[in-house]
Amino acid sequence: METVWACPAQLNRSLDDDLIEYAVEAQDGNVGVVVRISQVPGFDHLVVDTGVWKFGRSVVVPAGTVTAVDDPARVVRVGCTREQIKEAPRFERDQDTGDLFYLRKLGTYYESLETAPE
């Protein structure tokens, strides 16, 4: 990944509102549905409602984890597992997605996944 916060260049797109209500698929299954896209300068990310998967919890997924967008199927694919997303620093539903302390902590977590041994 170029950076955990930037949509990979090979996708030839940026995150924008046309991804709202797209399903999010991890390497091992469904994560939830995109409910918000935040483009805090330098911290592009998706807010995903996981529904009953994790007790109605929302999660933040950095743009750099996106591996593909299938517009006809309305699916965003990410390059991590459901468990890795569950283990990410917790996001509270009414939390401001522009909370830089939280975003830096989240970025550190996802960057550690890139360098972790397989």
Rank of each mutant, 00 (worst) to 15 (best):
E114M: 09
A6V: 12
W5G: 00
T3P: 02
I20W: 04
E25M: 15
V60R: 03
S112T: 12
A6C: 06
V66S: 03
W53V: 09
E118N: 13
R82V: 15
S112G: 06
L11F: 09
Q84R: 14
K105S: 10
L19W: 02
V48S: 04
V69K: 04
V59D: 00
V60S: 01
L19S: 05
I85V: 15
I20Q: 04
Y102K: 07
R74D: 07
T115A: 14
F91M: 03
H45D: 02
A73F: 07
M1W: 03
V47T: 13
V59A: 02
G79R: 03
P62Y: 12
G56E: 13
E83I: 10
D70Q: 09
V76F: 08
C7A: 15
G64V: 11
L113T: 07
Q10R: 12
E114Q: 10
R82N: 10
T115L: 13
A9N: 08
V35A: 06
F91K: 00
T108E: 11
N30F: 14
F43Q: 02
V61L: 15
E114W: 14
N12F: 08
V66W: 01
L19V: 15
V24D: 04
S14V: 11
I20G: 05
V34P: 02
G79I: 01
E83D: 15
V24T: 08
V59G: 03
V40G: 03
V47M: 03
A23V: 06
S38T: 12
V47G: 01
R82Y: 08
K54P: 01
F55Y: 07
S58A: 09
D49V: 02
P117W: 14
W5P: 05
E25G: 04
P41I: 09
D18G: 11
L100P: 03
D94T: 10
R104T: 14
G42E: 10
G32M: 06
T108S: 07
Y109P: 00
S112V: 04
R82Q: 15
A73G: 08
I20N: 06
V35P: 00
D99A: 10
A88H: 08
D70T: 11
L15S: 04
E83Y: 11
R93F: 12
C7I: 15
V52M: 13
D44T: 14
L19Q: 01
D71F: 11
A9L: 10
E83M: 13
E118L: 15
G42I: 10
F55P: 05
I37Q: 06
V60C: 07
T65N: 08
A68N: 14
I85E: 04
G79E: 07
D28H: 10
G107D: 02
F91V: 02
H45E: 01
L106M: 08
L11Q: 09
P62N: 11
D28G: 06
A26C: 13
Y109F: 15
P89A: 08
G56R: 12
D16P: 02
R93H: 12
Q95C: 07
E83C: 05
E92Y: 13
L106H: 07
V31P: 00
Q84A: 14
V59M: 02
H45Q: 11
D16N: 15
L11M: 09
G98H: 09
T115G: 03
C7Y: 08
V4N: 02
R90V: 13
D71T: 12
G64C: 13
E25R: 14
E87I: 00
G56M: 11
R74N: 09
T67W: 04
G107L: 05
